[in-house]
Structure formats: C-alpha cells, structure tokens
C-alpha cells in the first residue's frame, strides 16, 4: 500500500482536509469552537508546557490503514541534525521535562540514536513511540531494546488488539506476530517488568468506533497477552482515531464519516476538554515548524506565533498563544478524553 501522498490522493492536500472537517453544518454537528465556548474554554489557552513532542520524520516500515501521519516507506521527509540541535537548545533553556519522539518510525532517522544520547545528557524523560516491528525488521535494529534500556526510555507502542486478525487488519499482514517477537525481546531485558523500564501499549480502535473503558481494556489485554504469549506490559492507553489522513479516507470510503463525527460530537465531554494534551505539549514537525499538537501538524495548522519554528522557540510568547482548533478536536474530547497518554479523565 502506498501513502496518500504517493498516490496523489486528494486528501494529501491539507486544504481539502480542512474544507471537509470545517463544514460542521454539512456533517451535522455543532462547531467545536462553540462547544469550547459553552465551557468557557474558548479561546483555548495553554497551561504549563511539560512535553516537547518531536516528529522525527514520516518514514516508516509500516503502512497502517488508520495512520494520521500518512507515514510509510515511500515518505522521505526526516528531521535533520541541525533541527535536532535547535530542539536541544530549546530544552536547555526551558524546564520541559519530557521529550516524546514520534514519527513515522523515529528509529529510521539516521540521527535517532545521536539525538536520544544528547537528550539523555540533559536528564529529560524520553518517550519513544516505537511501532515494535522496526526492532525485528532489520539486523541493524535488533539491538534497539538494549539502547532503549541504556537510556531508560519509556517505550509506547501501538497494539490495536490482542488477536492477530484485528491487529493485522489495521497495521498490515504479519504485524501482530512480529510485534509479539519484539515485545518478548523487550520483556527479556526487563521492559514491562522492572519498575524503571516502562513499556506501555496503545489501543486504537480498528474501525469506526470509539475506544471503550481504558481500565477494562487494559485488564483484558494483560490477561490475554500473558495467557497466550507470556507478555507483560505496564499501561494500556486508549487513543481515539482522529479523522485525518488515512483514517479520514477510511471513514469517507466506508460511508462512516458523518456517523463517526456525530458519535464524537455526541460524546463531547467538557471535563476532557479541560485536559486536552495541546495545553501542555508543543509538537515539532520534521522540518522544525511548531504546532499545538501532532494532529494539527498533519493538517499544517502551524501554531500562533510570529515565527512558529523551533529555531525561534520563545516559551514566554508561546504560553500566551491561542491554541488552534477545528472539528477534528472532537476526537480528543469524546468520552473519557484522548491524548498521546491515553484517556484524560
């Protein structure tokens, strides 16, 4: 399967995306901004900046059907060392405690290990959003678990289901078996078992449905993965699929777009709206531009700043910005809420 960009698909144009998402009347939902205003949350403002989420590139060894990044082997955009140096300088002059590395497969960036080592020297907590299969995809990645362990990296990995058919339907043929192999390698060196080696899994629904209760799903995943595969992990994060890129394409092609958007809007939770991740996170694109979140990044909605680039990072100015929202934001405020760290309520 090729990326939407490679296919020259209409959704590879962010303006087309935004025209679809912005037309709330045609979708049959209230404008997200009005829902925020009802809870006195509009304009949405940041709280304290805790997390710098860095997208190290769109290159990936997988082509998942729901990918909001539209990542894949045919995507060549990756972060340069120069941009990483700007990120490091930003960390040095700020009190941001957590760096969340994502992609694509961040490990495919040739400067990934260099970057992790430098962040590690700054004593910041590092999260790597590892797709698991990268570890077993090529001998040059087989030692990744040891590298993660050396830097006490918190690994966060997608596993949409504890059955192979449901996982492979979303992430590609054979992904479940490779993921089990990678999880066993991580378990063997202490991940998911030792208190300082956290291995968290991410559950994204494998269709046009919202995630269920996080605690209940975590219990079921723990039971199934242990009973059938002797695999242990720490937390399960339930993340709602947002209608962007390939998941939007799936919704439109399958005829589920309006009903899914209505389900998201009907499940709007003002408490979840208070705790959305864009209030304590800034997202850095592969080319250094800044966004309120990874989803806005994929829609090319740069954050509100004179120079929205990591080279010009100004914590004080950014703390006063208005966070940009659109109707995809219903995905983070539905039900128990959704963020890169799972449910928010």
């Amino acid at each position: 399967m090729q990326s939407l960009l490679k296919q020259h698909h209409k959704l590879s144009n962010t303006e087309v995306h935004l025209s679809i998402l912005s037309d709330y009347a045609a979708i049959g939902i209230p404008d997200f901004k009005e829902k925020l205003a009802e809870a006195s949350l509009f304009p949405l403002k940041p709280t304290h900046l805790d997390i710098l989420q860095v997208n190290m590139g769109k290159m990936c060894n997988q082509v998942c059907k729901h990918c909001h990044v539209d990542a894949g082997p045919d995507r060549k955009e990756i972060m340069t060392r120069e941009t990483m140096e700007h990120c490091l300088r930003t960390l040095e002059k700020s009190d941001i405690q957590t760096v969340d590395l994502t992609g694509g497969a961040p490990e495919m960036n040739p400067d990934f290990r260099w970057f992790v080592e430098r962040i590690s020297e700054l004593n910041r907590q590092i999260i790597v959003r590892c797709n698991l299969t990268i570890i077993v995809s090529n001998p040059k990645y087989h030692d990744l678990p040891e590298f993660y362990k050396e830097h006490k990296i918190n690994i966060v990995s997608s596993l949409p289901h504890f059955t192979s058919n449901r996982t492979d339907a979303q992430r590609g043929e054979g992904v479940f078996d490779k993921s089990m192999r990678a999880l066993k390698m991580l378990n063997e060196i202490g991940y998911g078992r030792d208190s300082d080696l956290k291995l968290d899994l991410v559950y994204n629904p494998t269709g046009a449905i919202l995630p269920g209760d996080q605690v209940s799903l975590e219990n079921e995943f723990k039971r199934r993965l242990w009973d059938r595969h002797n695999i242990a992990f720490n937390n399960l994060f339930t993340i709602t699929n947002l209608p962007i890129n390939r998941f939007l394409d799936y919704l439109l092609v399958s005829g589920n777009f309006e009903s899914y958007m209505n389900e998201l809007a009907n499940a709007y939770n003002p408490v979840a709206a208070q705790g959305v991740m864009c209030r304590n996170t800034i997202s850095v694109g592969w080319d250094g531009f800044l966004y309120d979140c990874d989803f806005n990044q994929m829609l090319d909605m740069k954050l509100e700043a004179d120079k929205p680039h990591i080279a010009d990072f100004d914590t004080k100015q950014l703390s006063k910005r208005e966070i940009k929202v659109n109707n995809h934001c219903y995905g983070c405020t539905a039900g128990a809420g959704s963020s890169c760290g799972g449910a928010t309520t």
Binding site: H161, F162, R166, Y203, L210, G212, L217, E220
Partner: peptide
C-alpha cells in the same frame, strides 16, 4: 458497537 469498544473479538 459496545462490544467492539470493549475490545471483544468476533
């Protein structure tokens, strides 16, 4: 729909 949300398989 609720069964799928709770992670039940087919």
């Amino acid at each position: 729909s609720d069964s799928l949300k709770q992670g039940c398989d087919e």
